[in-house]
C-alpha cells in the first residue's frame, strides 16, 4: 500500500469506522487485562502479609521485608522441602532434555534425509502419537511401569519424559527444509561416511532446531503434573506435584486442615510464582523461538 493511499483512507474515515476502531480497542484492552492481570497480581502477592493480602488493594505493593519473610517461611516449610522439589524438577527436566536431544536429533535427521525401509511408517506413527494429548498415555505408562516395578524410581519420570515425538517432528521439518540433499550428497561423493556427513555437515547447521526442541521439551517436562504425580512420591516429587500438596496445609482454602504447620496465602502465592519462574523467564527471553516453534516454519512473518 502506498503512502498516498494510506493517507486517503485515513481522511475518509467514516463515523462507522471510528466506532469499529473504538470497539477493537475495547476488545483488545479487555482481553489484555484478562490475560495479564492475574500474572501481575501473582508478582505482587508475595510482597504482602496475610492481612494485607485480604485488605489492601489487589495491585498494591507490600514491602521487600515481607517478601523476604515469606521467602524464609516457604523455604523453612517441612525443613526445606520446597527447595528439594525445585531440585527434583530441574533434575528430571534436564536429564530428560539431554536424552531427548540425543535421540531426537539423529532420528529427525534420518527421517528427513536418509532413505530406509519403514521410514514412512515411523513418520506416520510419530505424527499420530505427537497429536494425541500427552495425558492420554499417562495411565497406561503408569500401569506398564508398575508391571516392571519402576514406580518410585527417578527413571519412571525421566524415561517417559524423554519420549518426545514433537521434537523428532520439529527436527524432521527443519532438516527437510533447511538442509539440501545435494549438500550431503556432495560430501558423500567427496568420500565422507554417513557418520561424518551427520556430525560435520548436518550438525553445525542444526543449532536452531536443537534450541527449539530443547525449549519445548524443557517447558513440557517442567510443567508436567499428571505423570510424576502417579509415578513418584515422598521426597522425589517435582515442584508441580509439591505445590498441589502444599494446599493441604493452607487454612484459608482448607478450613478443616488438621496440620499444625500452616502455610499463609502470600507464601503459597510465592510458591506458585517460583514454580513457574524458570518457564516464565524462558518465555520472556525466547519469544522468537516460541512463535517460530508454534508455527513450525510453516508461516513467515
Amino acid at each position: 500500500m502506498t503512502d498516498l493511499s494510506v493517507r486517503r483512507r485515513r481522511r475518509a474515515l467514516t463515523p462507522g469506522q471510528w466506532i469499529g476502531r473504538a470497539l477493537v480497542a475495547v476488545v483488545l484492552l479487555a482481553f489484555a487485562a484478562f490475560f495479564i492481570l492475574p500474572i501481575i497480581w501473582l508478582l505482587l502477592a508475595p510482597t504482602k502479609t496475610n492481612s494485607e493480602l485480604l485488605l489492601s488493594g489487589p495491585f498494591a505493593f507490600g514491602s521487600f521485608e515481607q517478601l523476604v519473610a515469606n521467602w524464609n517461611e516457604l523455604f523453612a516449610f517441612g525443613s526445606g522441602v520446597f527447595a528439594v522439589w525445585l531440585g527434583n524438577s530441574a533434575f528430571y527436566s534436564f536429564a530428560a532434555l539431554a536424552i531427548t536431544l540425543i535421540v531426537s536429533i539423529p532420528a529427525g535427521y534420518a527421517l528427513a534425509l536418509i532413505e530406509f525401509k519403514g521410514r514412512r511408517l515411523l513418520l506416520v506413527t510419530t505424527l499420530v502419537v505427537m497429536l494425541i494429548p500427552n495425558t492420554a498415555l499417562v495411565l497406561p505408562i503408569f500401569l506398564e511401569l508398575s508391571a516392571v516395578r519402576l514406580i518410585g524410581s527417578p527413571l519412571a519420570v525421566i524415561l517417559p519424559f524423554s519420549f518426545f515425538p514433537f521434537g523428532v517432528y520439529l527436527t524432521y521439518i527443519y532438516f527437510s527444509t533447511a538442509v539440501s540433499r545435494d549438500l550431503l550428497n556432495a560430501a558423500r561423493i567427496d568420500g565422507a561416511g554417513e557418520l561424518r556427513v551427520f556430525s560435520q555437515v548436518a550438525m553445525p547447521l542444526a543449532t536452531p532446531v536443537i534450541a527449539l526442541v530443547g525449549f519445548f521439551s524443557f517447558v513440557a517436562n517442567w510443567n508436567n503434573y499428571f505423570l510424576p504425580f502417579l509415578v513418584v512420591g515422598g521426597q522425589k516429587i517435582p515442584v508441580q506435584v509439591g505445590l498441589a500438596n502444599l494446599l493441604s496445609n493452607v487454612p484459608a482454602f482448607n478450613p478443616t486442615t488438621a496440620s499444625s504447620i500452616v502455610i499463609q496465602l502470600p507464601t503459597l502465592a510465592l510458591a506458585t510464582l517460583l514454580s513457574v519462574a524458570p518457564i516464565l523467564l524462558i518465555f520472556l527471553f525466547a519469544q522468537r523461538f516460541l512463535v517460530e516453534g508454534m508455527t513450525a516454519g510453516g508461516t513467515k512473518e
Binding site: 540425543i102 535421540v103 531426537s104 539423529p106 532420528a107 535427521y109 534420518a110 527421517l111 536418509i114 532413505e115 530406509f116 525401509k117 521410514r119 515411523l122 506413527t125 510419530t126 502419537v129 498415555l137 505408562i141 524415561l159 517417559p160 524423554s162 519420549f163 515425538p165 523428532v168 554417513e194 557418520l195 551427520f198
Partner: peptide, 20 residues
C-alpha cells in the same frame, strides 16, 4: 546409507516402543 538410517532412529524408536 540405510543401515545408518536405522542406527540414527534406533534410540527414538526404542522410546516410541517403550512409552508409546
Amino acid at each position: 546409507q540405510s543401515r545408518f538410517g536405522y542406527v540414527f532412529v534406533s534410540g527414538y524408536t526404542l522410546l516410541l516402543v517403550a512409552f508409546g
